[in-house]
């Protein structure tokens, strides 16, 4: 009788269950109607099964988003777990869609599902990639903009994981400020 190691048949469970959402900009519909839940997963193997099955971000049409959020959190400011939160935002220039977008987004996903932020991973709600003609954006959403320790730890680890040069900074903005901004930029609460 051959003994098979459990490694061979047991999937590797993640700390959290995650939902991947897709947003397609159809102006005839409401914002919420354009948002669709693609799938949920809670193992390493199922994460890859989903990731390998869908289009990479750089192939999406302008106006589309992918959002990965912990199960039970909707990818919008209004969700109870997001409304006091904010995001570490990275704005990419047009050239970066070809050179950096897909690897930055995959790295972001790996940070989330792998719980890369140590004891502060519980403060992470999700991440969003926006495909836009004027410049794509990737953001990690956290639960509480007031928690300096959690927010800055997450920002430092995230910047390091993306391999961004020291001189390039990313900023953290509260969703409340983003929602009420008057111009095109939102003030940063933190910068790393």
């Amino acid at each position: 009788l051959e003994i098979v190691s459990p490694e061979a048949y047991i999937k590797h469970p993640l700390q959290n269950s995650w939902s991947l959402w897709f947003f397609k900009n159809d102006k005839s519909k409401t914002w919420q109607a354009n948002l669709r839940l693609i799938s949920k997963f809670d193992t390493v193997e199922d994460f890859w099964a989903l990731y390998n099955h869908i289009q990479v971000s750089s192939n999406l049409m302008s106006g589309c988003d992918y959002s990965l959020f912990k199960d039970g959190i909707e990818p919008m400011w209004e969700d109870e777990r997001n409304k006091r939160g904010g995001r570490w935002l990275m704005t990419l220039n047009k050239q970066m869609r070809r050179s950096d977008l897909d690897r930055f987004w995959l790295e972001t996903l790996l940070c989330l599902v792998g719980e890369a932020f140590d004891d502060y991973s519980d403060h992470v709600c999700g991440a969003v990639v926006n495909i836009r003609t004027k410049g794509d954006k990737i953001a990690v959403w956290t639960a509480d903009y007031d928690n300096r320790e959690a927010v800055t730890h997450i920002g430092r680890v995230y910047k390091e994981r993306l391999g961004l040069p020291t001189k390039m900074t990313i900023g953290y903005q509260s969703h409340a400020d983003t929602a009420t901004k008057s111009g095109s930029t939102t003030k940063n609460k933190f910068v790393v």
């Binding site: 061979a8 890859w48 390998n52 792998g114 890369a116 004891d119 994981r161």
Partner: peptide
Amino acid sequence: GKRQYNRDFLLCFQFKPACI
């Protein structure tokens, strides 16, 4: 403890089919 997986560990599963 938390189930943390580093990037190399996660990446080595990308093209490894689950047996069942």
